[in-house]
Computed example of a mutant assay.
Amino acid sequence: MTATLDGPAAKPAKGPKPILDGKRSAGVQFSVYFGVVAPLVALAAAVPFAWGWGLTWIDVGLFVFFYAFTGLGITVSFHRYFTHGSFKAKPWMRVLLAIAGSMAVQGPLITWVADHRRHHAFSDKEGDPHSPWLFGTSPVALAKGFWHAHMGWLFERDVSNVERFAPDLIKDPAMRRVDKLFPVWTLATFVLPAVLGGLITWSWWGALTAFFWAGLVRVCVLHHVTWSVNSICHMIGERPFGARDRSANFWPLAIFSFGESWHNLHHADPTSARHGVKRGQIDISARTIWIFEKLGWAYNVRWPTPTRLQKLTVAEH
């Protein structure tokens, strides 16, 4: 596969680095399965658990807080900042952003960035780790493609080559440290809601329900919202801007994904700090970056301009 995408494997020095870098170890692969399946089981149990006795307003409040913190950690931090360089951040802010994204339990920082940059390099073509269009266009092929793009690709053991796709991050000692401590951030994302729930209610039951709702269920919901951008937003929706793939805008996900589902503009202009650029397109991530800029925590923000948007629109028509 590597030789097909990058040229003969016998002459690696004369071409780009391979897109893959071996396979995940058995231990890492087990952690992937556990990180995906355990929250999914919790979500399946959510309805009977909540029936009359398992959900309080404290759980709801903690769910919303941690969903926003870790969700923006993916959209503002891992995606727009670390992957695409949509803005620059103060050193302390850079570390906080990396931790927030890590607590979404979608993989370590450097791995996440490498996978997403690889996605853009080969979007909807061979080499894209999670395109829904790799198996054909028949109903069966599209069903298979949807599963693969949504979560099936996570169970494959191929590892994106970080030296090729994330060389800036592997050279950064602070980011390597945050990346290495991913198990700590994973533990924290489940323990902190439980601790807060227990302290607020002053009960073990409050700790348990907060762990369930603001921990397991929250992680599962955020997982599937994020993965829906990979799957749904490359299959259906509007395409007002010129892009070299099948990325589309899917408005029902806009609020839950903090603006990531305005996906067509993102693929047409990946470094733009704002994805929802048309009237009425709510982009909470862009507003968050704007607040960071006003506070002096972010700078050199790459906001879209009318001229740039006009060129992108004309490109399609």
Rank of each mutant, 00 (worst) to 15 (best):
T2N: 13
A3H: 09
L5M: 08
P8R: 03
A9H: 05
A10Y: 12
K14N: 13
G15Y: 03
P16T: 07
P18D: 03
I19Q: 03
L20D: 13
R24S: 10
A26C: 03
G27R: 12
V28R: 11
Q29M: 13
S31P: 00
V32I: 15
V36A: 12
V41W: 03
L43D: 01
A44Y: 01
A46C: 12
A50L: 06
A50W: 00
W51Y: 10
L55A: 01
T56H: 01
T56Y: 00
D59S: 07
F66G: 00
G71W: 06
S77G: 15
K88N: 03
K88P: 05
K88I: 04
A89C: 05
K90N: 11
K90V: 11
R94T: 13
L97K: 06
I99G: 09
G101P: 09
L109A: 03
W112I: 06
D115F: 07
R117N: 07
F122D: 04
F122G: 05
F122C: 04
G127T: 04
G127C: 00
H130V: 06
F135A: 10
S138F: 01
P139E: 11
A141H: 05
K144A: 11
H148F: 15
H150S: 12
F155G: 15
D158P: 02
S160E: 06
F165N: 10
I170R: 14
K171R: 14
R177C: 04
V178Y: 01
D179F: 08
L181I: 02
F182Y: 14
P183A: 01
V184M: 10
L187W: 08
F190L: 15
V191P: 05
A194D: 00
S203D: 01
G206S: 00
A210L: 00
A210P: 01
W213M: 01
W213D: 00
W213G: 01
L216K: 03
V221N: 02
V225H: 00
T226K: 05
N230W: 13
I232K: 06
I232Q: 05
C233E: 10
H234K: 14
I236M: 14
I236D: 09
D245S: 12
S247P: 01
A248H: 00
A248G: 02
A248W: 01
N249Y: 14
L253Q: 12
A254W: 07
I255R: 03
F256K: 03
F258L: 14
S261N: 14
S261T: 11
L265P: 07
L265H: 15
A268Q: 08
A268T: 09
P270K: 07
S272K: 09
S272G: 05
V277C: 06
K278N: 10
G280T: 13
A286F: 08
A286Q: 14
R287F: 08
T288Q: 02
I289T: 14
W290G: 02
I291C: 14
F292A: 15
E293H: 11
E293N: 13
L295V: 14
L295Q: 08
G296V: 08
A298F: 10
A298S: 12
N300Y: 00
N300D: 15
V301S: 10
P304H: 09
P304W: 05
R308Q: 12
K311W: 07
A315E: 08
